[in-house]
Design a protein around this nucleic acid. Structure first.
Lengths: 123, 123
DNA sequence: TATATACGTAACCATTTGATTACACAAATA
DNA sequence: TATTTGTGTAATCAAATGGTTACGTATATA
């Protein structure tokens, strides 16, 4: 069986920010991880990192520009909420390849099985 | 029946390149897409892009540095083969959030259901 | 043996990225 | 009203990124 994989990226609507690029930065992945458990203000997020608050603020901006984070104002505070469903493009992209590597592992497994049988016959 | 699972990333083969960063570039994602269907030489890969051959060569190098692509020499040609299982760290990372957004969608769905029932009662 | 081919790599360059500090401003508080 | 707090943004900078051309080198071919 052959699995054909189409280059879906070409079909995508141009976003201001690319979600693949957004999650490329480890700090931004950590921010996503933090927000998975709870909504946090920008300052609360920043407290978890060694970099400056404006640096964190900019990371959050990038995440919000590709929809992974939405911000709602509450007084002078801004609460960051994760929108995990906007990671879907990445999940879909990866999913094609999961099929591919599972096929690979299956065929490797059956290769090992054959090898075992062969060795048994050789004994 | 034995299932062999290779979590190569966990075996602490220190990778120079981060796989998240590797797939951040659209050209590299396209290269992965090309190689999913077939093994290709460096030049054959390069033919599919508008950028120069050395530029493609460098992208392939980056992909090979994080294990997504392996290269085997055959005469003067170098065949690039995809190792999709090395995308697993990304798949695992995404998977946590899939659970999160499915919960979100579920609760939204049940919210809609309640709304529908309510509207029916209001009629 | 001379030439063509398939690369990798070095030198270079423009742009992007990710950080900093300084500042502006609205909202809360004293 | 004066001050503190939470935040965005501008100016600036070093490093990383991604492209180019030029070149070296091993392998195939004439």
């Amino acid at each position: 069986m052959v699995t054909y994989i189409f280059v879906t990226n070409r079909l995508h609507i141009r976003m201001r920010r690319d979600v693949f690029q957004a999650i490329a930065d480890p700090v931004r992945r950590d921010i996503i991880g933090l927000l998975a458990n709870q909504e946090l203000t920008v300052n609360s997020v920043a407290e978890n990192f060694d970099i400056s608050r404006p640096a964190v603020s900019n990371h959050i901006k990038i995440l919000s520009e590709c929809g992974i984070v939405v911000i709602h104002k509450k007084g002078r505070e801004r609460y960051c909420q994760i929108q995990p469903q906007n990671l879907l493009p990445v999940a879909e992209w990866i999913e094609q390849y999961r099929k591919l590597w599972e096929e690979k592992l299956d065929s490797f497994e059956s290769y090992l099985m054959k090898l075992q049988t062969k060795n048994k016959n050789d004994e």
